[in-house]
Design a protein around this nucleic acid. Structure first.
Length: 209
DNA sequence: ATGACGATTTACT
DNA sequence: GTAAATCGTCATA
């Protein structure tokens, strides 16, 4: 396995979403701000979205609108969407080129730039965030903390100046992972219960349970 | 043009 | 535990 600081290249993203969801746990999500500041965290929770057959996926049934266009980009691109009128969430596109499958990043353990993350989260909703574990423990929280919005949609994680994935300490041993159903997809019928969410078993930095 | 709905978070009973 | 916040997106007309 490459050294911890090594950046993922295109080929590393060229895999199915289930494999990628597992492989990303323990790796590092890196955000470089326009000011040059570096923010990062260890990925501790992910969800796989299986594309046209997955009723919970935005690309279900082959839907291809302006919003989800990035899901059809080559593996390694970002798919950042806006939801609930106020939140952004970030995915890592994978699969074969043009196949609209992706992995949602649901939580990270803050590693670099905690002060800036706290400032960004506090600014986003008035009240201050008392604990480090509340900084990035959710898909929209981590986007807030890392200042990820629609301007970060469609970036190539293998070459972007703004977003990258590094190897960090992961991938972790399967015994350190817990697999559960995905969160917030009750509308997806039988797909709502499929175990497509992974989290670091003993991490305090996951979104819930 | 319009109405319904979120891959969420937070506060409050 | 329940509910509000808040608006881009999408399907329907």
């Amino acid at each position: 396995m490459p050294t911890p600081s090594a950046r993922w290249i295109r080929a590393d993203f060229h895999t199915d979403p289930i494999s990628l969801a597992r492989r990303l746990i323990g790796c590092r999500l890196v955000r470089l701000l326009p000011t040059g500041e570096r923010l990062s965290g260890e990925i501790v929770e992910t969800e796989a979205y299986l594309g046209v057959r997955d009723r919970a996926a935005h690309s279900y049934g082959g839907r291809r609108t302006e919003r989800v266009e990035s899901m059809y980009a080559a593996p390694g691109h970002s798919y950042v969407y806006f939801t609930y009128g106020m939140h952004y969430c970030m995915n890592v596109v994978c699969g074969d080129p043009g196949e609209p499958v992706a992995v949602l990043l649901r939580a990270i353990r803050p590693v670099e730039g905690l002060d800036l993350m706290l400032a960004a989260r506090t600014r986003a909703h008035g009240r201050t965030i008392p604990r480090d574990r509340d900084l990035c423990s959710g898909p929209a929280k981590l986007c807030q903390a890392l200042r990820i919005d629609r301007a970060c949609d469609g970036l190539d994680l293998a070459s972007s100046d703004a977003l990258a994935v590094e190897w960090g300490g992961g991938p972790v041993h399967p015994s350190r992972l817990r697999r559960t159903a995905r969160i917030g997809v009750a509308y997806a019928g039988e797909w709502a219960d499929k175990p497509l969410r992974w989290r670091l078993r003993d991490s305090e930095y996951v979104s819930r349970n």
